[in-house]
């Protein structure tokens, strides 16, 4: 069971004051939240690296959390930022498929999580760009395979990935 928004905000406020036990609990809870947050949008073998990357970002930028505002939208903004960065860097030909955890995530999402979810970013992309990113950057198909599957030319797949990632990075806080 992952702690609720109010508890996480309280733990973060205590951590900013140097409370180590509170910080330890916060990082563990944030780690579980991030694991669930990324599960559908990151191949399993890359999931833990990304979660750890965000936890380190949380640590480095913990002074930027404003105690008068909710915690999860702050964490989600950092998570989205690191995720888009991750998509840019990710190895282009991975064959691993995502685990099917949709039912688990959907059944447990509350209002805040739905508001800050990664799915909301994809809704704002044209379907051709979202499809190209999903196939190549998340599912790990090659450009050639994605081209065959979508009917787009290889150069169009590349252009759609480039434009889609650019748009995703512009949507990190807005969508």
């Amino acid at each position: 069971m992952i702690a609720d928004e109010a508890t996480l905000a309280r733990l973060m406020a205590a951590a900013q004051k140097g409370d180590k036990p509170a910080y330890n609990v916060l990082l563990s809870e944030a780690g579980m939240w991030l694991e669930r947050y990324f599960r559908r949008r990151v191949p399993p073998h890359q999931l833990d690296d990304l979660v750890q990357d965000v936890l380190m970002a949380l640590h480095a930028k913990r002074n930027t959390y404003d105690r008068s505002r909710p915690f999860l939208p702050w964490l989600a903004a950092i998570a989205r930022y690191r995720w888009v960065d991750h998509l840019r860097k990710v190895y282009k030909h991975e064959s691993d498929l995502l685990e099917d955890n949709d039912a688990y995530v959907d059944s447990d999402e509350d209002v805040i999580e739905a508001r800050v979810s990664l799915e909301r970013l994809f809704v704002h992309l044209p379907s051709s760009q979202a499809e190209a990113i999903e196939l190549v950057k998340i599912e790990g198909l090659s450009i050639h395979e994605a081209s065959q599957k979508t009917g787009q030319s290889e150069s169009l797949v590349k252009v759609n990935i480039h434009r889609g990632l650019k748009k995703l990075s512009a949507l990190v806080e807005k969508a």
């Binding site: 910080y23 330890n24 640590h59 959390y65």
Partner: peptide, 13 residues
């Protein structure tokens, strides 16, 4: 998490 917790210091928000 243990490492980050150990190096925690108060920060000015």
């Amino acid at each position: 998490i243990s490492g980050l917790t150990n190096e925690l210091a108060p920060v000015r928000t």
